[in-house]
Design a protein around this nucleic acid. Sequence first.
DNA 1: GCCAAAGCGGAACGTCGTTCCGTATGGTTC
DNA 2: GAACCATACGGAACGACGTTCCGCTTTGGC
Lengths: 204, 204
Amino acid sequence: MSDGSSGEGAKGAAPSRRKDARRNKEALLDAAAAVFVTSGVDAPVRDIAAAAGVGVGTIYRHFPTRADLIIAVYRHQVDACAEAGPALLAGGATPHAALGEWVALFVDFLVTKHGLAAVLHSDEAGFDALHAYFLDRLVPVCGQLLEAARAAGEIRSDIDAYALMRGIGNLCIGAESDPRYDARRLVELLIAGLRSPRHPLTGR
Amino acid sequence: MSDGSSGEGAKGAAPSRRKDARRNKEALLDAAAAVFVTSGVDAPVRDIAAAAGVGVGTIYRHFPTRADLIIAVYRHQVDACAEAGPALLAGGATPHAALGEWVALFVDFLVTKHGLAAVLHSDEAGFDALHAYFLDRLVPVCGQLLEAARAAGEIRSDIDAYALMRGIGNLCIGAESDPRYDARRLVELLIAGLRSPRHPLTGR
DNA sequence: GCCAAAGCGGAACGTCGTTCCGTATGGTTC
DNA sequence: GAACCATACGGAACGACGTTCCGCTTTGGC
């Protein structure tokens, strides 16, 4: 958000920085990914620094906030998920089915990232960027699927993508550490509850 | 769990302890309730101690774990919620409607307790007791409602009370601090998704 | 080889949960 | 009323953590 993220997207060019700086950033990314797997996304900063063989200062220089680090680690996967949305909509059977499949994709992603879902909802300062990134990237996709299903008359119309995404994220919390809790199943139920524009709960 | 919680349930008799000890415990309970409202259930221990006018050591003596304090503060409300279950089942229209009303009651309780839902799912050590208390108290009630609805043929049968309660709890996380997120609505959808034993998502 | 700028490591600081122990207090006994 | 001791109290002390800051090292252009 704040720093110069203008270029960066192209081939392999990020020549503005010194070589060792780029190398350290890379090492940090790799180390963080590894540590996240074993200790969860809220692993101590020092652990990540140690795993990368750098000092803690170096982490904060490259990733001012933990959220920035998490985003950097998972950016590719989130983007892939976002891009899968339209594809599913085009190739799938009904919009509602496509929505279900896409959501399952997202849930699979979240559930396999130890603690990500938990941190994703956290309103602690500093995680705003993480929040925003996921939301910016995924809510529009979800909205598109929702809109298509709505247009097809498959779902009730009074639910918005933002709330739904947050709900799905919340349902994934703790899923990785409790075998009795099946987040996938509950999300399925939630999506199923979206169906049928007849009457909600109150029979009016 | 550990200390002598044997009596305590009766009138006002808990004479085994010293007078000041009882007074402090009471002050702590009141202070905690007040602080929880303003700063959430994960307010710093020192704040609670200060609000009660005692030292931190006193908190830990009376409530070895933060979970114990939280349980003590909300015990009455949780119990009331648990007891409302059978009443709703007896008085309500259909079992599924009763389930919906009961769940709404629980959601209302959770949503108004700043941060409770968040801490309720947390698998950090020390919160096991809190977890266990809520689950022990509410899962059986939920199971009873679920069973009744199942017997009436109103819901699909392959969801268990534990997972459902955890899902509802999760959906309530962050509801108090985000006006765009309507936990009540999502829980309604989830309950609605329970309905109709026809076919889940896959059409088989 | 020289030098500024860029980058680095890790010590230092503040916050928090938790433990521990010297001291104060309540209740009991004479 | 005084003395005694178990009970309970307060808060200092400790360790883990996030975050900041600064003296030193490395890099890359000259």
